[in-house]
Simulated assay, not measured.
Amino acid sequence: MQRRAQRDQRDLGVPPTPSRQWGRAKRLRRAFVGAAAVPVMLVAAGCSSDSGSDDGKEKAADKTAASKSAKPSPTVQAAAYGKLPEPCSVLSKKTLEDLAPKADSGKEGASNDTATRAGCSWDSLDDNGVKGSQFRWLSVSMLRFESDASRGEGDKLAHDYYTKQLQDAQSAQGAKSVKTAPVSVTGDEASVVRYDLKKKEGTFKQQTVVARVENVVVTVDYNGAGLAGDKTPDADDLVKDAQKAAKEAVAAVTKANTADTDGGKPGTSSSPSKSASDSDAKPPSKSSPKSPKSS
């Protein structure tokens, strides 16, 4: 009956009583509050999920960085020799008198770092007038390699250059009757390449001795010719002379790096110098074997 009366009142346009109006408003507020709580919970859940994902990424990045920093940087053994001798003093006076008897003095090759690359050459022309003349050309060059983490140890770099020097000598332009042989008791490894070069002045006998001692490569070039009718020098004698010069040059390199009286270790130089491995392994500039005009 009460519900029917209420419907009758609505049909007649009678306003609801205050108590019924308050109850209806209360129910509406509860509905609005419940509906508003849903997106708040969703937003909160979404934030919680994203935050956890970022934390995971940051932790993974931290672990990767820690792993990289824990890895030791590559190292190589330090090179044995840290300097070179004065190039024009590596051969004794007696040896120079035998190999280049008419040479006034040595001509030092151009170098911007004599602790890394150095060289010296001597010209000798023994003029006998109408009987002809004997020509000799002697050159000693030295190249030192430092150990480098990216390229390897100094002695390995020196060995590679030693091999290249031999190949260059064996493939010299115009070389005839090329022969290669090992040289004993000269550094850690040594070989001699010999060949003939025919020029308008005469036949030149060329000897190239390449030797490696630790991280230093020594190259000795020695050639001779009989000019203006003089006889061609004996190639075997020239080979022996070139080998003698190479042994002296190698000994000079070793002596320059020998421990001093203060107990210093060989191979440590007093000041840093540029490594040959940082300069394309170029030897000091030197004069090409000369072919002097006959008298």
Rank of each mutant, 00 (worst) to 15 (best):
R3F: 05
R7G: 02
D11I: 08
G13I: 07
P16I: 05
P18Q: 07
K26G: 12
A31G: 06
A35E: 14
A37C: 05
P39C: 11
P39K: 07
A44S: 12
S49L: 15
D54I: 11
D54C: 00
G56S: 04
A65Q: 13
S69M: 10
S73G: 11
S73Q: 15
P74R: 07
T75K: 10
V76M: 13
V76I: 05
A80T: 14
G82K: 03
P87H: 06
P87Y: 07
S89G: 05
L91E: 08
L91K: 06
K93V: 08
K94I: 09
T95H: 01
K102E: 07
K102G: 05
G109N: 03
S121T: 14
S121F: 08
S124Y: 04
L125G: 05
D127N: 13
G132C: 10
G132V: 10
S139P: 00
F145D: 08
D148C: 02
S150I: 15
S150Q: 15
G154R: 11
A158G: 12
Q165N: 09
L166M: 10
Q170H: 12
Q170T: 07
S171V: 13
A175C: 04
V178Y: 06
P182V: 14
E189V: 13
V192Y: 02
V192G: 01
V193E: 00
R194Q: 15
D196Y: 00
K198W: 03
K198F: 01
K200S: 11
G202A: 07
F204Q: 02
K205I: 00
V210E: 08
A211V: 03
T219F: 02
A225S: 10
D234N: 12
D234S: 11
V239K: 10
A242R: 00
A242T: 02
K247F: 02
E248K: 08
A252P: 02
K255Y: 10
K255F: 03
D262K: 15
D262M: 15
P272D: 12
K274R: 09
D280I: 05
P283G: 04
K290A: 03
S294K: 05
